[in-house]
Amino acid sequence: MTLEEKVIEIIMEQLGVTKEECRPEAAFIDDLGADSLDLVELIMEMEENFGIQISDDELEKIRTIQDVIDFLRSKGVE
């Protein structure tokens, strides 16, 4: 499973959205119906799955699915 596929799988499960909705440019709040609490929970799930820590400052910069993937790559996740 690629990193993209894994990330999308987690997002689908956490936010209850479909694969089709999970385009890379999809924004969590504007396109996927998430609120700030959803986002915190989603990030906790990413931390758990990829063994990393995401600070609140870093969390603020994450807006789209691509942002998550880019961030994970920057932390050395493949």
Binding site: L37, V40, E41, M44, E47, Q53
Partner: peptide, 10 residues
């Protein structure tokens, strides 16, 4: 504390 869910209180 980082393992607490934002949904625990609500």
């Amino acid at each position: 504390p980082r393992k607490m869910s934002p949904f625990d209180i609500p």
